[in-house]
Simulated scan of single mutants.
Amino acid sequence: MQTLLERAARDDSQAWREIVERYSPLIFGICARYAIRGADAQDVCGAVWLRLVAGLREIREPRALPGWLVTTSRNECLMLLRQLGRQIPVDTAQLPDPADPAPEVDLDAGLRHETAHRVLDELPHRDRQLLTMLFSDPPVPYREISATLGIPVGAIGPNRARSLARARRTQAFAALAYAG
């Protein structure tokens, strides 16, 4: 199965539509964080897509695309603000309410959730089972994990550490670390 980026690199218009549809909210969320809206946000979004078209072959790991888009969007926002000579307001009455989450917070959480599932998909079945049980809400009790997986209760912690170490070595985790 080819990735969206591979299809886009071959000028597959459907792949480009999917990429734009999937990630435009992320770009607009970054714009909102910099108080860039309307036509200016559209300009930033267009500039990001142009940079992606120009640099598509530079992205070696397709799972790193969200991080690349975040970084590029931030850079485009800052460049626009410099060009317009605008400054971020210092009057606290003009600042967004910190109690209101930024639009990209939900998107970032969604991307992290999606990446966590990709990390799990790359792990051996036993690691996947253990980590899913340990990080479920509420967590599965150790006695139940022991009975289900046939692991002594005292060995669950060390097995967890080894499973997490393997998770950190997956490509999906590397993409998440790059995106942060």
Results as ranks from 00 to 15, higher is better:
D127F: 11
H117M: 14
P66F: 00
V20F: 02
Y142G: 09
V53Y: 09
G150E: 12
H117R: 14
G154V: 09
A64N: 04
A172D: 01
P96K: 13
A116T: 12
L4M: 10
V153C: 04
E76S: 13
G38N: 04
L123W: 12
C77F: 01
R126P: 05
A177D: 07
R118E: 14
R37S: 13
W16S: 14
A167F: 13
D12S: 08
E18W: 13
L111S: 01
S163H: 11
L81I: 07
R7D: 11
L107G: 01
R37D: 12
C77S: 01
D11T: 07
Q171C: 08
R57I: 00
R126W: 04
A161M: 03
M133E: 05
M1S: 03
G154D: 10
V140Q: 05
E144V: 12
T170W: 08
R166Q: 11
I59L: 10
L80G: 08
P152E: 11
H125Q: 12
Y142W: 09
R86I: 00
S73Y: 07
C45F: 08
L56C: 05
A41E: 02
R112G: 01
T132V: 05
T3N: 14
I88K: 15
W49R: 02
C45S: 11
D106S: 05
E21K: 14
A41D: 02
G180Y: 03
R63D: 13
F28K: 10
A116D: 09
A35S: 07
I30V: 12
I36F: 04
R128I: 00
D43A: 06
T92A: 10
L131Q: 01
D108G: 02
D97M: 10
R128D: 11
V44S: 05
A8D: 09
A99D: 15
S163C: 15
D106W: 00
R63A: 10
G110P: 01
E58W: 04
P98F: 12
I36T: 04
T170C: 11
A165F: 08
Q94W: 13
A93M: 15
R169A: 15
M1Q: 03
P89L: 02
L120T: 13
L164T: 08
S163T: 13
C77W: 00
H113Q: 14
Y142S: 13
P139I: 09
E21P: 02
H125C: 01
E6Q: 03
I59H: 03
D91G: 04
D43C: 03
A8N: 10
L5Y: 01
G55C: 02
W16T: 14
L65R: 04
G55A: 03
L149F: 12
P138D: 11
L130G: 15
L164W: 08
A99G: 15
A15T: 15
E114N: 05
